[in-house]
Amino acid sequence: MKADPGLYDYWPYRDRPKVVWPDGKRLAFWVAPNIEFYELDPPPNPQRKAWTKPTPDVMPYSYRDYGNRVGHWRMMELLDRFKIRGSISLSVALIDHHPEIIQACVERSWEFFSHGIYNTRYCYGMDEAQERAIIEDAIETVQRATGQRISGWLAPALTHTERTMDLLAEYGLTYTCDLFHDDQPTPVKVAGKQRFCSVPYSLEMNDSITFNVQNITPRRYVDILKANFDRLYKEGEESGTVMCIPLHAYLIGQPYRLEPFAEALDYITSHDGVWVTTGREIARYWLDNYYDKAAADIAARAT
């Protein structure tokens, strides 16, 4: 076990090479709905239990199922209203369970990236072959169902191994959502030397952290989103920033939360300097235009 994962070098958020997003935009805004499937009775992982009560743990299981049956459809309609294409953090097995959701998202040209097979199957304790198997499953299953080859990864239930990033890069993925060290994309060091980056996803703006952990009110969620946006938008004038809103339909899709939330989307998308985009497009643009500059700047500062 290591004290430091060694995935990136120190790079202070100051005087970095200037990032400008397409068409002169200064903030890349993306929304990442987590479309998840939790199993009612998953096999146990030695390091983490899926549910706290004996099977069936009805309340938390059905709470999440609400997202797929009800919340998703409302959330999707809301994103349509603001012309936002979601970047889906997908429990890949949901393709088999709920193809109607997949079809609706394909029709909207939303991006699909992998969030593991189920959100109740954790990576703790996997050997390399097992971790390769879930990555290959994700690539093949998503490609077959959507025609898209996945570019991004958010580890199932944020569970990793020491080799996760190396494997993702080896399979040709371009970005990870699992690192929370920055407000801009940064290079991620991988064994195979591929160009691989971190695209800021956010736990701070994540509805699951704000509602389930911080227990905040829907209207305070709007305040937080606006404050986060205001600061990143201002700083984006100096060098382009990224703001992500990760969502879970079982949380944001509750009727009493959706209306306040619409206000935040309206506020953000009404600013001229906002590039409303997807995770894959941010990674692609940044890798093509800024990866080399970032790497050179980091190397220069290290000397």
Partner: peptide, 11 residues
Amino acid sequence: TPYPDLRHFTL
């Protein structure tokens, strides 16, 4: 979380 807790480390 169990090792490696990239989430809290990177935050």
